[in-house]
Structure formats: C-alpha cells, structure tokens
Computed example of a mutant assay.
Amino acid sequence: MTQADGFAIRCARSFQRHGVVDAAKERLSKGPSMLDQALYHRALQLSDAPLSPEEMVTLALKTYIAIQSAHRLADLGGSLPDIEDVPRRRWDPEEPSE
C-alpha cells in the first residue's frame, strides 16, 4: 500500500466518523436518484464485487473527498519547513476502526 492509499483510507474513515458520508447519502436519498446508468454499469464491470447504487455513490463520495483532501494537503506542502515532526499512530487497515 502506498502512502497515498493509506491517506485516502484514513480520510474516508475520518469523514465517515464525522458523518459527512451519511449526510450526503441522506440528502441523495431524499430526491430521485439520477445516476448515469452506462457509467454505473461500467463501474460494476470494474468492481470486484457487485455494488448497489447506494454503495457505489458512497464509495464515489469517499474517493472524491479523499482526493480533494489530498490536493488541499499537497497545496500546503512546504509551507512550514522548520516544523517539528509530528508523531504518527500506526494502524492496521484490516482492523475495524473505533
């Protein structure tokens, strides 16, 4: 797993923990779902397991949020070159989050 993969997973878990994904799913469920069926079926062909439209939207939102967060973090790169190293927590991606 690359650093970017780990970062994306941590971002997705953080947003899930703070209810961002649930709020987006709730908002989407209130109105008619307007998924591009061709795009949805293409994504199903590429996925390892069959996903419902709700699962697909959730996964897409998590991925989008993680990518945008990574871009914002990259934009901050080097703005504090003399900062002291921050201790990192080690985590196992297979272990459920608390």
Rank of each mutant, 00 (worst) to 15 (best):
T2Y: 03
Q3L: 11
A4C: 06
D5C: 02
D5E: 09
D5T: 02
D5M: 03
G6R: 00
G6Y: 00
A8L: 04
I9V: 11
R10A: 03
R10E: 01
R10T: 00
C11I: 01
S14C: 11
S14G: 11
R17Q: 09
H18Y: 04
H18R: 02
H18C: 01
H18W: 01
G19A: 12
V20Y: 04
V21L: 02
D22H: 09
A24K: 07
A24I: 15
R27M: 06
R27Y: 05
R27A: 13
L28C: 10
L28F: 08
S29G: 13
D36Q: 12
Q37V: 15
A38Q: 13
L39M: 15
R42M: 15
R42S: 14
A43W: 05
A43F: 10
Q45Y: 13
S47V: 04
L51Y: 01
S52W: 03
S52E: 04
E54L: 03
E55D: 15
E55P: 05
T58P: 03
L59P: 07
A60S: 14
A60D: 06
A60I: 07
L61A: 05
L61V: 14
Y64L: 15
Y64H: 15
A66G: 04
A70W: 01
A70M: 10
A70E: 09
A70K: 02
A70N: 09
A74Q: 12
A74S: 11
D75V: 06
D75S: 12
L76I: 06
G78A: 07
S79N: 11
S79F: 13
L80H: 09
L80C: 05
P81A: 14
P81M: 11
D82L: 11
I83P: 00
E84D: 08
E84T: 05
E84Y: 02
P87D: 01
R88N: 09
R88Q: 12
R89G: 02
W91S: 05
W91M: 01
W91H: 01
D92I: 07
D92W: 13
D92T: 07
P93S: 11
E94F: 02
E95I: 10
P96S: 08
S97G: 08
